[in-house]
Design a binder for these strands. Structure first.
Length: 655
RNA sequence: GGGCCGGUAGUCGAGCCAGGACCAAGACGGCGGCCUGCGGAGCCGCAAAUCGUGGGUUCGAAUCCCACCCGGCCCGCCA
């Protein structure tokens, strides 16, 4: 029996990583010996990165491709070099986790792991460390702020925060409340016209409705006025036709809204008609709010609070949590924005254009050689950024710069989980920070872009009242999950069925989004997003449920000290997957890549199902083997739970 | 017009940054097997891919470079 090193408490162990480290060190030793004999033939090489995963197990568990690099220098066949390296490796004495080393065509050096030792190491680690297994801590913990908002962005943002937290960073998630923009002002305006009623139903939906109607009516009004003006000024027919066409579109939108929400539509139309200039009234609200005029301040804050309560309820359903809610208005009221503006003017890179201030971001980039520093291509076009309106009020990007600086007061690193369409704006924020002297901050500012998500071709949020809400998605998922549960597990009590369906539906949605690279735009159809056959969330959960089923059937069992009987291929494949969790986790954290964990979770579940089919447990006569297999089941459950928690999925115990 | 991002089987998608055993993972759909022993939301097998197109670099390209095509997005005193 191989001796097993003690597992340190509080420092998660990394079985496969140990194997890798041993391969690396053996390779290094052998290589430096070869270097001594002939320096020219064996130049300095990055040995660690030459180790890769072989395509299948016949080739061992890690392989080095360094012979290929060397063959370039030596003008020798890779296979010849590989044999030479293997020969040299053969001289090494200490082989803890390495079973064998072989040269293989066309020139790989293949390392095979000592499975018995790896098994022991892995199961000991998991069973001792429990839920902290695999969560390898970073050597450089940072204070990280992850900003994100809703739906797909939030699912990624929340997951990144979980992963970075597991990695040992001090992570805070922030929700940026955009309360000084036009949208909230329009809501508040419409709400006031309605007489400020108590919202019926979910407040964010209620205000969404008001916003759609109000903004449409304002748009209609503005377009009509513009058309009248065009006719008066003898504008070209082309302009008039274009204007008329746009007006027609808004008439269509209005008609849709009228049929959807007849009561509110009627009241708002009637009352707005008494306002000679609705747009002006809304602008007035924005101005007053920026100045924190008490009545407006109270109105807009009240409206925002109600909407946020609705958001929070929805997000909570999807297991999304926020540590802090930041008001954009606070950036104005505390003087941060005006101070920022003054400092930007002092840089000499901002100029006044008809009363509005404009930042020449392109010049800023060129003057400071920022292309290279910020990783932009030579051709990347960085356009100017308008900082203020001519009436002096600020624009969203300006406030966002101030907000970014605010976040950096509390964090070393800021990750903004925001749509790809904001790439330019996010870059301009970085440029602004740089020219103000916040260079380190500009470097540690990361835009994590999210590709557009549409459902059946509709956006998750949009003007014109044509959109699918996150709630609708969650509701539909719950409904479908409930049907599946009814179909497959009709014997469960009602309450359990509900809880199971709830967990499965959220997990399915999160998994469906997280398993596709974040920047990719996706059009989900209901069937695709919520197909519980295709979706891996139930597949993963089922592995967990099956495991629990076995353990429950066995009752309490003594944990074995050794795991020398787990020698079936399906068992070893499962163990190898478990051994690789720490590396996979660390990589997903370093690369900010949740998709990696999705693939891992699916792979682990797959290997468990395979093991389940092939290895009996409860009917075994061999008590020792039974205990060892039960421990493997237990260990798999621990890792499945850990990885799914990182993804924000919730595993149902029965399903 | 300029720019950014994406383009991998019928469909969805991993691999691309760090080029090597890629005759390309996985899934849905299709076809065919497996329930008198732990829950079949499972297991096993088969068919299906000009890796957008054309050049280049390299011993070697899905991966790097160039050009082009297609799709999405951005270039606002909107957010």
């Amino acid at each position: 029996m191989t001796s097993v090193p003690m597992v340190g408490k509080g420092s998660p162990s990394d079985p496969f990583g140990q194997f890798r480290a041993e391969c690396e060190s053996l390779l290094r030793g052998a290589y430096s010996n070869l270097q001594k004999s002939d320096k020219k033939r064996f130049p300095e090489l990055d040995l660690a990165s030459s180790l890769e995963d072989p395509p299948n197990q016949e080739f061992g568990h890690l392989a080095s491709s360094l012979s290929f690099e060397l063959s370039r220098v030596q003008k020798t066949k890779p296979m010849t070099i590989a044999k030479e390296i293997v020969h040299e490796l053969g001289k090494a004495r200490v082989h803890h986790l390495v079973e064998s080393v072989q040269a293989a065509e066309p020139g790989y050096v293949n390392f095979k792991a000592k499975i018995e030792t790896l098994t022991q190491l892995t199961l000991d680690a998991i069973l001792h460390e429990g839920s902290s297994y695999g969560l390898l801590k970073t050597g450089q913990p940072q204070r990280v702020i992850v900003e994100h908002t809703s739906a797909k962005n939030s699912i990624f943002g929340d997951t990144l925060a979980r992963i970075l937290g597991g990695r040992g960073h001090a992570v805070k998630t922030h929700f940026y409340i955009d309360d000084t923009g036009r949208q909230v002002a329009q809501m508040a305006y419409g709400y006031k016209l309605l007489g400020e009623p108590t919202p019926e139903g979910k407040p964010d939906e209620f205000f969404g409705k008001i916003y759609s109607i109000t903004s449409t009516l304002v748009e209609l009004d503005e377009n009509k006025k513009r058309l009248v003006l065009l006719r008066k000024t003898n504008a070209s027919d082309i302009d008039i036709v274009a204007m008329t066409k746009e007006l027609d579109e808004w008439v269509g939108v209005a008609a849709e809204l009228q049929s959807k929400y007849p009561a509110e539509f009627e009241v708002l139309t009637e009352r707005m008609s008494k306002d000679p200039d609705p747009q002006g009234s809304i602008n007035e609200l924005i101005r007053k709010y920026e100045k924190a005029e008490p009545v407006t301040r109270s109105l807009i804050r009240r409206v925002s609070q109600m909407v946020l309560a609705g958001f929070e309820e929805t997000l909570r359903r999807a297991h999304i949590h926020f540590d802090q809610w930041d008001w954009e208005s606070d950036m104005l009221w505390t003087g941060r924005v005006s101070e920022l503006l003054d400092r930007l003017k002092e840089t000499g890179l901002a100029h006044s254009k008809g009363g509005a201030w404009v930042l020449d971001a392109g010049k800023a980039v060129d003057d400071n050689a920022l292309r290279e520093k910020l990783g932009l291509s030579k051709s990347f076009e960085v356009t100017s950024l308008t900082l203020t309106r001519s009436d002096g009020t600020t624009l969203y990007p300006t406030r966002d710069i101030a907000y970014s600086l605010y976040k950096f007061e509390k964090a070393d690193r800021v990750i903004n989980v925001i749509g790809v369409e904001q790439s330019l704006a996010q870059l301009q924020v970085r440029v602004a920070m740089w020219i103000l002297g916040y260079r380190k901050q500009a470097m540690n500012f990361l835009h994590f872009p999210i590709g557009l998500l549409t459902l059946e071709g509709q956006r998750m949020s949009a003007r014109r009242g044509r959109y699918v809400t996150f709630d609708q998605l969650l509701d539909e998922a719950l409904l479908r999950a409930r049907q599946e549960v009814d179909k497959r597990s009709s014997e469960l009590p009602e309450e359990v069925k509900y809880r199971v369906a709830e967990s499965l539906s959220i997990s399915a949605i999160r998994y469906a989004m997280l398993s596709v690279e974040a920047v990719k735009s996706t059009n989900f159809t209901w069937d695709r997003a919520l197909n519980f056959e295709a979706n891996s969330a139930p597949f993963i959960n089922y592995a967990y449920t099956r495991g629990l089923g076995i353990l429950k059937k066995l009752g309490s069992h003594e944990r074995p000290s050794y795991f020398n009987k787990l020698i079936e291929p399906a068992e070893q494949n499962l163990i190898l997957a478990l051994a690789r969790f720490p590396e996979t986790f660390a990589r997903s954290a370093e690369e900010l890549d949740p998709t990696l964990l999705c693939l891992y979770a699916n792979d682990l579940a797959q290997r468990f199902h395979e093991f389940y089919e092939k290895s009996d447990i409860s009917h075994l006569k061999d008590e020792e083997l039974k205990r060892q297999r039960a421990s493997l089941v237990e260990a798999t459950g621990i890792v499945l739970k850990c990885v799914t928690e990182l993804l924000g999925m919730k595993l149902a115990e029965r399903m």
